[in-house]
């Protein structure tokens, strides 16, 4: 078979709804794009542990503390499943981590914003995880088997992440004046970074069309963003919270909530490493990695010495 025929057969398989499995022929570009996407996604889960992880020790009730720790732990699990999916394409975890720590790999820019108050735990759970769920539900249908399987598992785990956040926002929005102020302030700071999570406009997203054709994605950035706004904006307003977008309005004709324009300069600045916490986040990951080197080495040494002895 010529490369051209292989490509045709590959695209026909995807059109029939088949999943591509490790070992199957795939265009080099498909492999490359998937490694890029999946490893970015994995890094996002891991770096995403940090802004919330910082508040585990300060959670105001025992129940919230346990929930938050379980959620942060789950995000680690998601990163673990995703690194696994990328490994099936020939990337190694060591290489991927190296790319993250040296600043070569990207991750979701939303995690480069600081978590400043406890109410951020509610807002992150509802909005950040809520946005992630929309993206992940789509990716569960992805044409690459291991990625879609990781997503099936992740999606079932995510539901509580969002709901525990929502539960907090509901409570604080109807709570004491300081709680109300705190949760409004959290919304003010997180709303725009969350909308940016869906990525640039379709017109500025060069890979989008091909990823859709190859069944990796089934919806565009703008479609997902619109779905998210439609789903979230009315609920936030119902709670008496004010969304920090004077241009936001409901459009009867399209049945959509139309938002104002995202500050794309800020978006690119943060993506390129110049957000409020980029350095801090990478430094935390680098510390964990370097401080753990002797531990990983020790277990290798033990395994070599006692191979087969159990």
């Amino acid at each position: 078979m010529s490369e051209q025929e292989k490509l045709q057969e590959f695209e026909a398989r995807i059109a029939r709804g088949e999943k591509i499995e490790p070992g199957d022929w795939m265009p080099e570009e498909y492999r490359k794009q998937l490694i890029r996407m999946i490893s970015q996604h994995a890094h996002s889960e891991i770096v995403g542990m940090l802004p919330e992880g910082a508040w585990i020790t300060r959670a105001p009730t025992l129940r919230r503390k346990i929930t938050l720790l379980a959620k942060v732990q789950d995000e680690g699990g998601h990163g673990q499943y995703l690194y696994h999916a990328a490994e099936t394409l020939g990337a190694t975890r060591a290489e991927m981590i190296d790319a993250l720590l040296t600043g070569k790999a990207k991750y979701a820019s939303v995690f480069n914003y600081p978590s400043l108050t406890w109410a951020d735990m509610g807002m992150i759970g509802w909005l950040v995880d809520g946005a992630a769920i929309m993206n992940q539900t789509m990716l569960a249908h992805c044409s690459y088997g291991p990625y879609s399987r990781a997503m099936v598992r992740i999606c079932t785990e995510e539901t509580f992440h969002k709901k525990q956040g929502m539960e907090q926002v509901i409570k604080y929005a109807r709570g004491t004046p300081p709680q109300k102020a705190m949760v409004q302030d959290a919304l003010n700071r997180w709303w725009w970074p969350v909308l940016m999570m869906f990525g640039p406009h379709d017109s500025n997203s060069p890979n989008s069309a091909q990823l859709i054709r190859w069944g990796v994605k089934t919806k565009t950035n703008d479609e997902l963003r619109q779905e998210f706004i439609n789903k979230t904006a009315p609920d936030l307003q119902l709670l008496g919270l004010k969304i920090p977008d004077p241009a936001l309005h409901y459009d009867e004709a399209s049945d959509n909530w139309i938002s104002g324009e995202i500050d794309w300069d800020e978006f690119w600045r943060v993506v390129k490493g110049d957000g409020p916490c980029n350095k801090e986040r990478l430094a935390a990951r680098r510390d964990a990695h370097e401080n753990g080197a002797w531990v990983r080495e020790a277990l290798n040494a033990y395994a070599e010495r006692f191979e087969g002895e159990g």
């Binding site: 673990q80 499943y81 696994h84 981590i97 598992r153 080197a293 277990l299 290798n300 395994a303």
Partner: peptide, 28 residues
């Protein structure tokens, strides 16, 4: 850097279901 070896993991979810591949873990 070493991230240890990869082991594939199989889990059995219900008595009437077979073991299935869940993913993998790194371990020494």
């Amino acid at each position: 850097d070493s991230q240890w070896q990869i082991y594939q993991v199989f889990e059995k979810e219900r008595a009437d279901l077979p073991h299935r591949n869940a993913g993998s873990v790194h371990a020494s």
